[in-house]
Nucleic acid binder design. Structure first.
Lengths: 201, 201
DNA sequence: ACCCAGCGATAACGCTATTCTCGTGTTCTG
DNA sequence: CAGAACACGAGAATAGCGTTATCGCTGGGT
């Protein structure tokens, strides 16, 4: 295993054990059995390491998810899988770690949007394909562009992961993956002239 | 103006000028014309100050929004105002500052959920009232509890503020307040047996 | 044999939040 | 009015962090 990979692996371990990304570079280095010198030879900064951790996490998760989703053919079912599995995975594996990652993701949105877009690309790509297929099949609304729907759903899911920690504190209620899907399903369904849609983008 | 208020006011100015919350306590103190000593006499930490800034921002905004919303009677229109004005306000006033605040809000979600819930209470309360009224009037779906819908919409809007910065970088598209409302309106509409709702919470 | 790129160990730097010290007013209290 | 408690200003001091720099080693390629 290369030294870069070793740093990323150990950083991921620390993330999952402590539930956040504020471990020190010193901790990381000691635990890796490598040196500070070596760390800064492979990564320009701690931020660059965190970016790599995020990228790896997304890449591996999306790749596994894509496999499972392609076993299904119905676009609506595909979207349902996408939504519920994404939410469900962050519940199962490690809620706090997932929340920390999406929090870091948001700081990236402010500081380095281009970098973030690159890292998020695989995930956005997958979702975009699903939605596009659904729109062509007439199962999803077409009064909003595919790209807009993709953005909306991406952010709804991400903040669901984050806000879930709040859940009980906020309104005393917490929701489940099916609840989230029920909401998203309504949001993306073809408009029925229900309570107010009036915009053509 | 009390010294606490002065610190909060100046911090808010710095937030709006620089677009983020990483100003130094030193900066804050110098600009206030007060002393470090004094700062730590009124706030236990910088975090406590930021919390107060957030609280004040929410309190004043919700109070103004509530006034405008109560001029309207239709629950659906009320929700539309809530969604579009919240999103629109963060566009007009200062996108980066709003994004920084909601980012800080998310770190609070992880670290001090109870504190965050207290600060968000006015906003959640307003939204909750609107949704409850709409459900009673049969204009909103009732297969999900009011509290769940409140959480879902709160987070969708908040992350919309945050993610908006991404917009063009992510899918090349960015959406507008009416787009956001179109999505939310679909999500909260009474279920029409459309593309999959199957959960009873 | 030589070189040099990568490495380990460790000190050092700069920035930040936070605490401490000391001396001065200011205000409440008896 | 006298005195004490308190808030304050100015600034030094502390501690933790990311980051950079120093120095000496080693091992493989020429």
């Amino acid at each position: 295993m290369s030294r870069s990979e070793r740093f990323i692996t150990v950083a991921t371990e620390l993330l999952y054990e402590t539930g956040n990304l504020d471990f020190t570079v010193q901790d990381l280095v000691e635990r890796s059995g490598l040196s500070l010198r070596s760390f800064y030879q492979h990564f320009a900064s701690k931020d660059e390491l965190l970016l790599a951790v995020l990228e790896e996490a997304i890449r591996s998760y999306v790749s596994s998810l894509r496999g499972r989703i392609e076993a299904e053919s119905d676009p609506v079912r595909r979207l349902e899988m996408y939504v519920t599995e994404f939410f469900g995975a962050s519940q199962k594996s490690n809620r706090r770690a997932s929340a920390a990652l999406s929090r870091y993701l948001l700081t990236l949105a402010g500081a380095e949007p281009a970098e973030l877009a690159r890292v998020l690309a695989p995930q956005v790509q997958l979702l975009s394909e699903i939605i596009d297929a659904g729109c062509r099949a007439g199962r999803f609304r077409t009064d909003l562009p595919v790209a807009v729907l993709t953005n909306l759903i991406t952010q709804t899911i991400m903040s669901a992961v984050e806000m879930d920690v709040l859940g009980s504190h906020l309104t005393g209620a917490s929701y489940t993956a099916p609840d989230l899907w029920a909401f998203v399903a309504g949001g993306i369904a073809p408009s029925t002239g229900g309570p107010a849609t009036r915009h053509q983008a």
